[in-house]
């Protein structure tokens, strides 16, 4: 059976992108170990609302690690202490009685704070709009089994495609680079025969969009891979770089 724990919670509050922001400190008492991290914040918010105060704003939706909406920087790690899990999948049994838990938003030039812990990640959508697709019309394409794809290739594409677009890689990177995210999408599509015809153009378009939006360069620190909740591999970045160089040579 899980034990109840009590701890100190330091939460970043910021009223809009221009506000300087500050930490609020709360004492949390008797939180059951089988409470999820976000449910713990629900408890805090319920207490705040009962006291007539405004709740802490944070992004969340599916609460099962797939939508990519939740985005907290907990004790210096994007998505907190667990590996291969998002913030919403962390349970309080991971923390100890008496802990101090610090919660901050993603901090990166590419993701301005909207309020408290909520940030603006529309830059990711813009990168996708620049080339994160196969140009195929809705209609009647050929039979799905007409394209044979060897299982290892399909599996590799699937691994790359499991990126949830959360932004933890950017938050983890000291350069604020979005390379892991971009390379995951480029790899998924460039590995598959359907995506090959546009492979080079895609790599170039998505990368230039990334630069244009103010994300930093990749200097291979591997922090992104270590913090990615879906364990997206840094080998995707190498593949992206190869495709990018090929595209450059063609120009």
């Amino acid at each position: 059976m899980d034990k109840n724990i009590s701890f100190t919670l330091k939460v970043w509050r910021q009223n809009g992108p221009k506000d300087k922001g500050h930490f609020d400190t709360f004492q949390m008492k008797d939180i059951p170990g089988d409470t999820s991290f976000l449910e713990m914040l629900d408890i805090l918010n319920e207490q705040l609302v009962e006291g007539g105060k405004e709740p802490v704003v944070f992004d969340h939706d599916c609460r099962e690690g797939i939508c990519g909406m939740c985005s907290l920087y907990i004790n210096g790690h994007p998505h907190g202490p667990a590996t291969g899990a998002t913030t919403c999948q962390i349970y309080m049994r991971r923390f100890k009685d008496g802990d101090v838990i610090t919660v901050e938003p993603w901090r990166s030039a590419g993701f301005p704070v909207i309020k408290d812990l909520m940030v603006d990640r529309t830059a990711y959508d813009k990168i996708m709009q620049a080339g994160g697709f196969v140009s195929v019309r809705t209609g009647a394409p050929q039979d799905a089994n007409a394209i044979l794809i060897p299982k290892p290739i399909a599996d590799e594409a699937m691994d790359a495609a499991s990126c949830i677009g959360c932004g933890a890689c950017v938050a983890a990177c000291k350069n604020g680079s979005a390379m892991l995210f971009v390379s995951a999408k480029v790899s998924q599509l460039n590995l598959l025969p359907q995506g090959k015809p546009e492979a080079l153009r895609r790599a170039k378009a998505m990368l230039s969009k990334m630069d244009e939006l103010g994300f930093g360069n990749c200097t291979n620190t591997r922090a992104c891979e270590a913090e990615c909740p879906k364990c997206v591999s840094i080998s995707n970045i190498a593949r992206l770089n190869r495709d990018f160089i090929k595209a450059k040579l063609k120009d």
């Binding site: 039979d143 799905a144 359907q194």
Partner: peptide, 10 residues
């Protein structure tokens, strides 16, 4: 067919 053409990794 449509999804495979889009690159959905079934």
């Amino acid at each position: 067919d449509q999804c495979v053409a889009q690159g959905v990794p079934f």
